[in-house]
Simulated assay, not measured.
Amino acid sequence: MSPAPLDLPTVRTAPKALLHDHLDGGLRPATVLELARECGYDRLPADNADDLAAWFADAASSGSLERYLETFEHTVAVMQTPEGLARVARECALDLAADTVVYAEVRFAPEQHLERGLSLDEVVHHTLLGFEEGVALAADRGQQIRIGCLLTAMRHAARSLEIAELAVRFRDRGVVGFDIAGAEAGHPPSRHLDAFEHMRANNAHFTIHAGEAFGLPSIHEAIAFCGADRLGHGVRITDDITVGKADRAELGRLADYVRDKRIPLELCPSSNVQTGAVASLEKHPFDLLARLRFRVTVNTDNRLMSATSMSEEMVKLATTFGYGWSDLERFTINAMKSAFIPFPDRLRLIDEVVKPGYAVLIG
Rank of each mutant, 00 (worst) to 15 (best):
4 A>Y: 11
7 D>W: 01
9 P>G: 08
10 T>A: 13
13 T>A: 13
14 A>H: 07
17 A>I: 14
19 L>A: 12
25 G>L: 08
32 V>F: 05
33 L>Y: 13
36 A>F: 08
37 R>K: 15
38 E>S: 15
39 C>P: 00
39 C>H: 11
40 G>W: 08
44 L>I: 03
48 N>R: 14
56 F>D: 08
57 A>W: 09
59 A>V: 06
60 A>I: 12
61 S>Q: 10
68 Y>E: 11
68 Y>F: 15
71 T>K: 12
72 F>Y: 13
77 A>F: 12
79 M>H: 06
82 P>Y: 07
84 G>A: 07
85 L>G: 06
88 V>C: 11
90 R>A: 11
105 E>V: 04
106 V>D: 00
108 F>V: 03
109 A>R: 04
109 A>N: 05
122 E>K: 10
123 V>L: 05
126 H>N: 07
129 L>N: 14
132 E>F: 00
136 A>R: 14
137 L>S: 09
140 D>C: 09
143 Q>K: 15
147 I>F: 03
155 R>Q: 04
159 R>A: 10
161 L>F: 00
173 R>H: 09
174 G>D: 01
182 G>T: 14
185 A>N: 14
185 A>P: 06
194 D>G: 03
209 H>K: 11
209 H>N: 09
214 F>T: 14
215 G>W: 02
220 H>T: 14
224 A>Y: 12
226 C>E: 01
227 G>Q: 02
228 A>F: 11
230 R>A: 07
233 H>C: 13
233 H>R: 12
237 I>Y: 01
237 I>H: 03
238 T>K: 07
239 D>P: 00
239 D>L: 03
242 T>F: 10
242 T>W: 08
249 A>D: 02
253 R>E: 15
254 L>W: 00
259 R>N: 01
262 R>Q: 15
266 E>W: 01
266 E>C: 09
268 C>P: 07
268 C>G: 05
270 S>G: 14
271 S>W: 10
279 A>T: 12
280 S>K: 05
285 P>Q: 08
289 L>D: 02
294 F>I: 10
296 V>R: 06
298 V>S: 08
298 V>Q: 00
300 T>S: 15
303 R>A: 11
306 S>L: 12
311 S>D: 06
318 A>T: 06
320 T>D: 01
324 G>A: 09
324 G>L: 02
328 L>P: 06
329 E>T: 02
333 I>T: 15
333 I>K: 03
333 I>R: 13
334 N>W: 03
336 M>F: 08
338 S>K: 06
341 I>M: 02
341 I>F: 01
342 P>C: 03
344 P>D: 12
353 V>A: 05
356 P>V: 13
358 Y>A: 07
359 A>I: 02
359 A>K: 14
360 V>D: 13
